[in-house]
Amino acid sequence: MAEPLLKISNLNAYYGEVQVLHDVSLEVYPGEIVAIVGANAAGKTTLLKSISGLVRWQGDIVYGGRSLRGLKPNQIVELGIIHVPEGRGLFPFLTVLENLEIGAYAPNARKAAKETLEKVFRIWPRLQERQNQLAGTLSGGEQQMCAIARGLMGLPKLLMLDEPSLGLAPLIIRDCYAAIEDINKRDGTPILLVEQNVKLAMQKADRVYVIENGRIVLQGKGAELMDDDRVRKAYMGI
């Protein structure tokens, strides 16, 4: 395999004095979908926040051959690492269109904003219909669409999705993942996603990391892990 696009080695992350991640190592290779699964409060979100520069960490995170140490969140976004946060994180009192425009904040993304917007509207015509509606008034599924679309507006070279299926109906989840796989296939954008729904993650991801109490306890190909007895017992209740 080629060089990893993202390489995390021996990462320790903290909220104030509390250590949340212990010695986490993880790689994302070009074109992959990688899932991080685990129970609530296992540290999945913290891992994404560390990459985005929102929490204090030790160890190393190297992206495209360059360490992210000391970079501010906005500099990390400018490198093309786009983080779609848990719970969508839309700006509720901005319209759908304004949310998308703000998604293209970084200078290179803003230059291309017009074309990207057309592309995003082609993928989700629903968002175009609702472009002048306040984002806070969208349904859950539409909000998730809008959040992912807003991520695309930033021209991601690595797209990080935090719990895209959270709180959505099964049918909507299916659509949502179809869109994610599409982004990955069409643009070759590598995707790092956090998912509570272990079964779903293992079906959709090329590789999966299982995180427990802030440590990576298992890793492997999605399909292989599905047959792993420990995983079946602990997460799938079979």
Binding site: L54, P73, I82, L94, E98, Y105
Partner: peptide, 13 residues
């Protein structure tokens, strides 16, 4: 946007 959600605003760059 910044006033509505500061953390997410950071994630927008």
């Amino acid at each position: 946007a910044t006033m509505q959600n500061r953390t997410v605003a950071m994630l927008m760059g």
